[in-house]
Design a protein around this nucleic acid. Structure first.
Lengths: 196, 196
DNA sequence: GGAGTTCTGGACCGAACGTTCCAGAATTGC
DNA sequence: GCAATTCTGGAACGTTCGGTCCAGAACTCC
């Protein structure tokens, strides 16, 4: 044994994640990362190997920390249509805040890197699948409980809702207009209105 | 008068656009641009002022050249639900090709730059509005002609469809799966099925 | 053909990029 | 306190970045 690390790896990872989140992979330099984490270059390379490896770790950190927070109760096994509504509503809410313009790290990454970086694409794809499955589960629960009318294809509806969510994040970047974003969310949810 | 330009400005712009399209603003270097256009640095700076200005020109070039091509008859005044279907179908088709993974320059740009670059955000926003209006017009025509059931809010439906289109482009980057993408497009269009 | 103007190739600029490296400080087990 | 080990700050690496500059070639007009 020898000298122990003088910083918290998780805190550093968290700071790196936030940086990548707001500026993207290419838009974040190693200097930016050392400044934000407080680590020296040596420490950063010792612990995280390099920029790309750190980015992948940051992506996973985002999935395990930020995504659950944004999904809220949608992640729970007995989520229903209310949780889907809350999720989309939360996205809109976020996009309207000052920091919200940075959107979703996974969406940003899908666009910036997924087509040319298989390792990153795997993480992004895994997220998309998991999100779709959560929504599908919620839709099935909603039908089962009679909260919405039966669906021809719950899996398809779920995937379309996920696409809408991703679209919201793109549109919100250029046009963070409350009425527009709420209209989109409401309209996408209209087919799942409560049974009269 | 003096020596005339020895290249075609439009051809150069076109090559630059394709480069930005596939690699993004930050992912494209001036060296890349000179290589792709065949221009020397001097000529490139003489004619296009710099990388950022060239990018904005390329964005506008994309809007005036590529977007109309992808929209097809959807742009026409008497477009209807068929043209909306064809548009979404075309997007899916594109995403499944080798080159299609580059997605849509305007979507890529919205994610990469819109939050921090007002000039670029303006162009992106203008495109989103125009697209939404075309879809809305098509939906209204479809209702008017009795091709689909009346809509509570055609403008809202149109905006949701545009969001779906944008979402498709994000998801397609990480997961260019034919069945998935078609499912999304079909599901988003389900509320506008032909009147029985 | 000569004067005037514009375009072009390529060298050059300082700055920033991601990464490597090493001397020395810090901490451990003994 | 000593030896062994690990971490740390910062200098340094070669490369690439976006942008500037200039000498000279190319062309038009007269």
């Amino acid at each position: 044994m020898a000298r122990p690390r003088q910083f918290d790896t998780d805190e550093a990872l968290d700071a790196a994640m936030r940086l990548f989140w707001s500026a993207g992979f290419r838009g974040t330099s190693v200097d930016d990362l050392t400044a934000a984490t407080g680590l020296s270059r040596s420490s950063l390379y010792n612990v995280f190997s390099g920029k790309h490896a750190l980015f992948v770790r940051a992506l996973e950190h985002y999935r395990s920390l930020v995504v659950p927070e944004k999904m809220g109760e949608l992640a729970s096994d007995d989520a229903s249509i209310g949780e889907v509504r809350a999720y989309l509503g939360g996205l809109v809410e976020d996009l309207l805040t000052e920091d919200g313009r940075q959107g979703c790290l996974l969406v940003n990454t899908a666009v910036e890197l997924a087509a040319e970086d298989d390792e990153v694409a795997d993480v992004v794809r895994a997220h998309q699948h998991l999100l779709a499955e959560s929504v599908e589960k919620a839709l099935r629960n909603a039908v089962k409980r009679g909260e919405i009318a039966p669906l021809a294809d719950p899996a398809a509806s779920a995937r379309a809702l996920v696409a809408t969510a991703h679209g919201l994040m793109v549109i919100g970047k250029a046009d963070p207009d409350e009425q527009l974003l709420r209209t989109i969310a409401d309209s996408a949810l209209a087919p799942f209105s409560p049974v009269a």
